[in-house]
Computed example of a mutant assay.
Amino acid sequence: MAGAENSRAAAMVRRFTRAETWVHRSLAWLMGVCAFTAAALYVPQLAEIVGRRRLVVTVHEWSGILLPVPVLAGLVSRAFRADAGRLGRFFPHDWRWLRALVRTRRREPSLAGKFNAGQKLYAAFSVGAVLVMIGTGVLMWFPRLSPLFWRTGATFVHDWLALLIGVVIAGHVWLAAKDPEARRGLRTGHVPRWWIRQEHPLWKPDRPPPHRK
Rank of each mutant, 00 (worst) to 15 (best):
R212T: 06
T104C: 02
T152K: 15
E5Y: 03
S63Y: 09
A182Q: 08
L101H: 09
L131I: 10
R81Y: 00
A154Y: 14
G137H: 08
D179V: 03
V23G: 06
E48V: 08
W141H: 04
C34F: 11
R197Y: 09
A35P: 01
V157C: 13
H211M: 12
L148W: 10
M1S: 15
A9P: 00
H172C: 05
A79L: 04
W29E: 00
A112M: 08
L131R: 05
A182D: 09
R15S: 01
L101D: 02
S146I: 01
F115M: 05
W95K: 10
A154V: 14
G88K: 09
G171M: 13
K204N: 14
D94W: 11
G153Y: 13
Q119D: 03
L131K: 03
L164E: 09
W203Y: 10
W174A: 15
L111R: 14
L87T: 00
L55C: 05
S110T: 06
A79T: 01
G51Q: 09
H172Q: 07
R52H: 12
V173G: 03
P92L: 07
F91W: 14
R184G: 01
P205S: 06
L186N: 05
A19V: 04
A28I: 05
T152A: 14
G32I: 02
N116D: 02
R15E: 00
T188E: 13
V191G: 02
T104R: 15
F90D: 03
T136M: 07
W141Y: 07
M133Y: 10
T104S: 11
G137C: 06
A9Y: 11
R107Y: 09
R25V: 07
G189T: 03
G74P: 02
G171K: 01
I165D: 07
L186W: 09
L148H: 12
H24N: 03
E48L: 13
L27W: 01
W194H: 15
V43W: 13
L164V: 10
V167C: 10
A100M: 04
D179W: 00
R184K: 13
L148V: 14
L66G: 00
A177D: 08
G153W: 15
A124R: 02
E48K: 15
A11M: 12
W141L: 09
F142H: 10
R8K: 15
A117L: 09
E48H: 12
H200E: 01
V71A: 06
V167N: 05
H211C: 12
R54A: 13
H190R: 13
V168E: 15
G128V: 00
H60M: 07
Q198I: 03
L131F: 12
F90G: 10
R81D: 11
R144V: 12
W174D: 12
W203P: 06
L30W: 01
V130W: 13
V173N: 04
A154E: 02
L67C: 10
P143I: 08
A19K: 00
R193A: 15
L66Q: 07
R89W: 07
S146E: 04
F142I: 14
W62Q: 03
A154D: 01
S126I: 02
